[in-house]
Design a protein around this nucleic acid. Structure first.
Lengths: 199, 199
DNA sequence: ATGTATTGTTACAGTGACTGTAGCGATTGA
DNA sequence: TCAATCGCTACAGTCACTGTAACAATACAT
């Protein structure tokens, strides 16, 4: 399983050093007050190397926060015959939230990430983008799963409402200083609100 | 009503020239292939002037968004006593949609924006940021207007669902080649879908 | 009308994110 | 041990964006 060669191990070490240097510096002085050059310097690599590992300055903080769209698609694919639309949709969203949550918590950087995401718009947006990029895909899968109930517009609107509600609720919770559990409850509450309009 | 002085009129003319130059250039050559310096040059102003009118290069394409939020806030502020939440919300959204149709959809600007946003990450990001701040403002106003019915989370979720649904529907309509009228109908349909969950 | 304050615009000089490229040196596989 | 690979570096460059001082046209007072 861990068959990484020496070269690859060194690469990962560099990557990790960049992440840790960035987190420490961001924590100390704030996101905007830290330049990429300084991060690279603290990690003892050249500035160019930073961008060989991360596409943007923001990405160094979201390195392990991938959203698994395929999980939601899987839920839709594996639905039981005759299962109501609202239940499938709720379960799919819940699955995505749970997965993203686990990764964030296990990374150990969840607190800093939440704090920075709440205060730096660029990070806020970048996080939400991961959910939004899944939107069209989800809508399409949902429409194919319920062709009799949903046209393309309705499917898009439904998924858009879900993602929009959950994202907005999560952000509001984070911004007012809620902890992880409360934020998660807020997301579920938002989900339930939209789910009512399907039934 | 139009009591603008000469100075202010010139300013607006400069602003409009920048917008039109930008739209034309973006349409011709694509977003990334146009520099701010070129836009300023085409509008016959200095590059510095561009940033006195728009915070970022992306903002020149989102010039009318602020006006729209103001319209919705106005609807909320001018509600009749005892008017149901669902009606106020629907009217506020409807007002924004109508304005969007007037300004952006009918002119084809919305279609260009959707096309560019789909392919340019920076534009996507900025658009999202605008939506987020607009949503937060709306949610706050809505909660203050209906403090007995809405907590902060529910208000955010509600507005997020509305905006998310309407945006997704509009995008889907535009992407499949619908005209301005069909796009507007799609937005209204999405709005009605979410509105059901309030009642 | 005339002087004064305001302000939209400008030129200039920066900072910092991000990219292309060529070369070096350490791993890798044969 | 030879050759190919590849992560990294240095260097030079583009471009979005900002601070600042100055200018000239407008606005406003007297």
């Amino acid at each position: 399983m861990e068959k990484l060669g020496l070269r690859e191990r060194k690469k990962q070490r560099t990557r990790q050093a960049l992440i840790e240097a960035a987190v420490r510096l961001f924590d100390d002085r704030g996101y905007d007050q830290v330049t990429v050059a300084e991060i690279a310097d603290a990690a003892e690599v050249s500035p160019r190397t930073f961008f060989l590992h991360f596409q943007t300055k923001e990405d160094v903080l979201l390195a392990n926060a991938d959203v698994r769209v395929d999980l939601a698609l899987q839920v839709i694919a594996e639905r039981h015959a005759g299962e109501p639309l609202s239940e499938v949709l709720v379960r799919a969203m819940d699955r995505m939230i749970a997965d993203a949550w686990d990764r964030d918590l296990s990374s150990g950087l969840a607190a800093l990430r939440a704090r920075l995401a709440a205060s730096v718009p660029a990070l806020q947006t970048r996080l939400l983008q991961r959910y939004l990029s899944a939107q069209a895909e989800l809508a399409q899968a949902l429409q194919r799963a319920f062709p009799a109930r949903l046209d393309a517009i309705t499917a898009s609107a439904l998924v858009g409402a879900m993602v929009g509600a959950v994202s907005a609720a999560a952000l509001t919770a984070l911004e007012r200083g809620d902890g992880p559990d409360e934020a998660r409850d807020a997301m579920r509450q938002a989900m339930a609100l939209v789910a009512r309009s399907v039934a």
